[in-house]
Amino acid sequence: MGLSSGTTGETQVISVHCDRIDAARAIQFKEAMRAETQTGAKRIVLDLSSVEFIDSSGLGAIVASMKQLGDGQRLDLAGPRPIVEKVFRLTRMDTVFRLFASLDEAICAGAD
């Protein structure tokens, strides 16, 4: 599962380099996220701008990624394409996560 990670200020940005997060990749995604989020960063932004499609299994893997964070860590999402944003909206997961239109917006907003 292609993830890459960097730090901007106090925010760790994890970018997904894979066009789909679906049933075929959900478990790999969750495990890759577990590895990437061991840094202990307080705020993590997941950049979804390269993701062309997500299904409910992929959505579940993002939820699982949030649950497996350490105490005091939070996960925000950035750059969802319309189809990805739609899956979050229909399942009401858009009320659980903070979704930012772009990575820049997510970084500017900070953790507040």
Partner: peptide, 16 residues
Amino acid sequence: PAPVDTDLENLPEGGF
């Protein structure tokens, strides 16, 4: 749909 108005640990990971 699986309800999402719940604690973090009880958030659904499927059922959609």
